[in-house]
Amino acid sequence: MVIVENSRILAAETLPYRSFPDQAAVGAMEGALAKAGLRREDIALCLATGMGIRAVAFADDAVSEIISLHRAVRQLNSRARTVIDVGGHSFMAFNITEDGEIKESAVTDRCAAGTGMVLDAMAKVLEMPLDEMNTSAARSKKPVYINNQCPIFVESEVISLTNDGHDVLDLFAGVAASLAGKIAGLVGRVDLIPDVVMVGGVIRNSLVVSNLERKLGLGLTRLDGIDPQTVAAYGAALLAEERHRV
């Protein structure tokens, strides 16, 4: 949830998608309103975006995730020519032309391999916060590579490997490398033109990002001044603002 005024972020709120999507949407809205010191009536227009569009009961309308992301990236980095979004459940990549239009896109909404779910599965099995694992695993000397890509199978493979006595951090380093490999494969469906901007929750995992940069052979750009998980919401807010002006 992002609230903007004159294209500036007044407040942003991120809630995990564990409960029902409608409750999460209401909770995120209430949280953002509280942070901004606003009331519901102060919101002139609200657009919903993302996988759970239908669950945002209070939205005036909906826009697709790619349109929202494109809008936000254009606002925050005019040099972006490639955008990679790796979220908890989805993967998306697209190119932006010199004229700022969307070109060549790749979307995975049929399979959770190559998404943040893989990391969530790891955190669950290893009972360690992701950030902590990420920091410690960066020191792993010998990553243990895994065979599976499906998060459900990754989970059981990691359990077996842990029971075989493998070091937890070596395993995490292996999973991060494997996830980066899968993402690199998906990114291959669009042109890799700099600047390559990465958004989505997975960017917070520096081990995945460094592996991905190595595999792609270039540096990934982060967007400044925004939580990488709220980029699409910010784009939807910018679009809402434009519509309201009309």
């Binding site: 998608y17 999507p21 996988m51 759970g52 459940h89 909404d109 049929r110 399979c111 959770a112 779910m117 998060p151 459900i152």
Partner: peptide, 8 residues
């Protein structure tokens, strides 16, 4: 087609 996405 993915059982994780089916959860959603």
């Amino acid at each position: 087609p993915c059982c994780i996405l089916t959860q959603i």
